[in-house]
Design a protein around this nucleic acid. Sequence first.
DNA 1: TCCTAATTGAAAATGAATTTCATTTTCCTT
DNA 2: AAGGAAAATGAAATTCATTTTCAATTAGGA
Lengths: 177, 177
Amino acid sequence: MNFIFLDRPRPLSLTCIMGNRRKHSTACPRKVSEKKEQLKAFLKQKGFKSTRQRDIIVTEFLKTGEHITAEDLYRKINRKNREIGFTTVYRTLKLLTKSGFATERLFADNLTRYEPLSAEEHHDHLICLSCGSIMEFENLKMERLQEKIAEEFGFCIITHKMEFYGYCRECRDNAPA
Amino acid sequence: MNFIFLDRPRPLSLTCIMGNRRKHSTACPRKVSEKKEQLKAFLKQKGFKSTRQRDIIVTEFLKTGEHITAEDLYRKINRKNREIGFTTVYRTLKLLTKSGFATERLFADNLTRYEPLSAEEHHDHLICLSCGSIMEFENLKMERLQEKIAEEFGFCIITHKMEFYGYCRECRDNAPA
DNA sequence: TCCTAATTGAAAATGAATTTCATTTTCCTT
DNA sequence: AAGGAAAATGAAATTCATTTTCAATTAGGA
C-alpha cells in the first residue's frame, strides 16, 4: 500500500453530502433507538440473545455514524467499558452486517470499515488522499448509467463499489504536483 | 469476506470487452518485447540491474495479461523455473507498479491483483460472483459524469475504482434467488 | 430455579503482504 | 579479465488485520 494518507494519523471526519441533496450523517436519537428495537426483534426471532455488550456496541456504532473500523470502534468503546473485548465488537459488527443493519467495505488502505445501513440508500465515496476524510455521494444519473452498462454486458449487478481517490477542496492546494 | 465466489476455485478466465469496442486481452509478442525494452531502459536509468529472474517474471506477467495475484504468477512461473522464489515475483510486481508498467488492485476478495498498464487506458471491472471471471469496460460517459460529480464537490480526482459485483451472462441462471 | 444454547473474551490461528539477512549476482572500474 | 561496490535473490521470519478456538459465563425459556 502506498497511498499517501496511510502514513498519517487517520482522522475520522466525515462529511455527508449527496449529489443534490444533503443527508444526515449521524443518526438522530429517535432513529437509533428505533434501530435498536428492530435489532432486538431480529435477535429474538433468530433465537439469539440480547446482551449488555451488544447493546453498548450497537449504540456506539449507530451513534458514531459511518465508516468505522472494528478496531476504532473497539477503542472508542473501550475507553468507557474496559471489559468489552475486541472480539465481541468484531463479532457484533459481523452480526449487524449479516442481519442487514450494516455494511462492510474494504477500502484501498486494506482496512475494513463498517457503516450503519439505512435500507434504500446506496452511496459512493470520495476519499481524500491528504486528510483521509471520506465523503459520500449518491447520484441518480450514475446509477442509471451503471445499469445501462451492465445491461450491455448481460450482467446482473448485485452490488457495486465506486470510490474516487484524490484531494478534497480543503486539501487541493497541498496536493503534490 | 463472504462473497460467494470465494468458496470456489478461482478461475482465471478473463474476458476483455470495452463499452463499445473490443480490446486485446493478451498483449501481442511485438508489444511484449517492446515493453521489455522500455523496462530495461528504465532499470538502467535508475541504476537497477537486469536479471534473469526479472526477465522471466516480466515476460510471463506480460504474456499472462491481466488481473493476476503475485501468488498465482509465482505458481505459473514456478512450474518451469523451480528456482525463482515468491519474494522475487512479489518484488518484481511491486517494481513494475512503481515504475509505471503495472497497476495494483485490491478487489473485494481481499487479494491484490496486478495488471500490465498501457498508459492511456483506465478501465473498470465487472466481477462475476459465480464463476469469478473479471470483465473490463471503459465508458466515456461514465468518465465525464465522474468528473462532473467531483467538480461539484471541489474534489480533484487522482484515481478511481469502480467495480460491479453480480452475475455474468453465463451465470445469471445460477444466481441465487 | 434449572438447564441448555448462545455469548463472551483472551489467546491462538490464519493468511496475505512485507521485511530481514546472509548469500549471490550484476556490471562498472581498473 | 579481475576486483569490488551496490543491487538482487530467496528462504525464513515478521507484520498486521481478520478470524477462529475454547473454556468460562450469561441469557432467557421451561
